Simulated assay, not measured.
Amino acid sequence: MRFLENVGYLFLLLLFGVCSFSTDAEGVREFTSQKNVYVTEWSKLKHRAELGDPEALFVLGNFYFDPPKGNGFRRNYRKASEFYFQASLRDYAAAQYNIALMLHQGLGFKKNILESYVWFYIASTNDSPVAKHINNKTAVIVLQLEQELSAADLSQAKKKVEIYRKIIKSKRFRDAKLPE
């Protein structure tokens, strides 16, 4: 009889243990299934950039263009230009302005006045409400570059503007190639 009582108690303990383990396992499974657990702000920013967030791409470009002191980043104009270019294609006016400046000065690219004119023009006609201050700056630069470029170069630049605008509008970012 005592044997049956002991077996009964043992059975109840095992049953209770299995039930509590399964609820703990569900809790662990639920915790590990969270997709947005970030160790650092950097990884969060990097993840947002990988998803195509133009603001995150722009901020990463800034980190490589002018890294804050004491953070371990090294200045890398080429890497900055890649992030700025991707943000520019997503119609981010500040990135369009930065990419134009980098092309004009030859930072991260070969110096290319024609391509810089294209991006200054796109930035000057950006209709986002945030772009008002950039539109004013770039409009002056566009007028100045139009006087410096030949008629053939201006014609070629207008064609490139239309190509980039189609890419921006259609959101087919892979169709664009980073200038050299």
Rank of each mutant, 00 (worst) to 15 (best):
T40P: 01
E41Y: 14
E41C: 04
E41P: 05
W42Y: 14
W42K: 05
W42C: 00
S43Q: 15
K44L: 05
K44I: 00
K44W: 01
L45K: 12
L45G: 01
L45A: 01
K46Y: 12
H47G: 00
H47Q: 08
H47N: 10
R48T: 03
R48I: 04
A49P: 05
E50D: 09
L51C: 04
L51W: 08
L51D: 04
G52M: 09
G52N: 01
D53Y: 13
P54G: 05
P54Y: 10
P54H: 10
P54L: 13
P54Q: 13
E55V: 15
E55G: 08
E55N: 14
A56H: 08
L57T: 04
F58A: 05
F58E: 02
F58V: 04
F58R: 10
V59A: 09
V59H: 00
V59P: 00
L60K: 02
L60N: 01
L60Q: 05
G61I: 14
G61R: 11
G61S: 09
N62P: 00
N62F: 03
N62I: 11
N62Q: 15
N62L: 14
F63Q: 09
F65D: 00
F65E: 01
D66W: 06
D66K: 15
P68F: 06
P68L: 06
K69M: 02
G70S: 08
G70W: 11
N71S: 14
N71A: 13
G72Y: 07
G72V: 10
R74D: 09
R74M: 11
R74L: 13
R75Y: 02
Y77S: 05
Y77K: 06
R78A: 07
R78Y: 11
R78L: 11
K79Y: 05
K79A: 07
A80C: 08
A80V: 12
A80L: 08
S81M: 14
F83N: 07
Y84M: 06
F85P: 01
F85D: 03
Q86R: 14
A87E: 01
A87C: 06
A87V: 12
S88R: 13
L89R: 12
L89F: 08
L89M: 10
R90H: 06
R90M: 04
D91F: 03
D91L: 09
D91Y: 10
Y92R: 08
Y92L: 07
Y92T: 06
A93V: 05
A93S: 13
A93Q: 01
A93I: 02
A94K: 15
A94I: 15
A94N: 12
A95F: 13
A95W: 12
Q96F: 08
Q96D: 04
Y97F: 13
Y97E: 02
N98Y: 10
I99R: 04
I99L: 15
I99A: 04
A100Q: 07
A100P: 02
A100G: 11
M102H: 05
M102E: 00
L103K: 10
L103Q: 01
H104D: 13
H104F: 15
Q105I: 15
G106C: 01
L107F: 14
L107C: 01
L107P: 00
G108C: 09
G108D: 02
G108A: 06
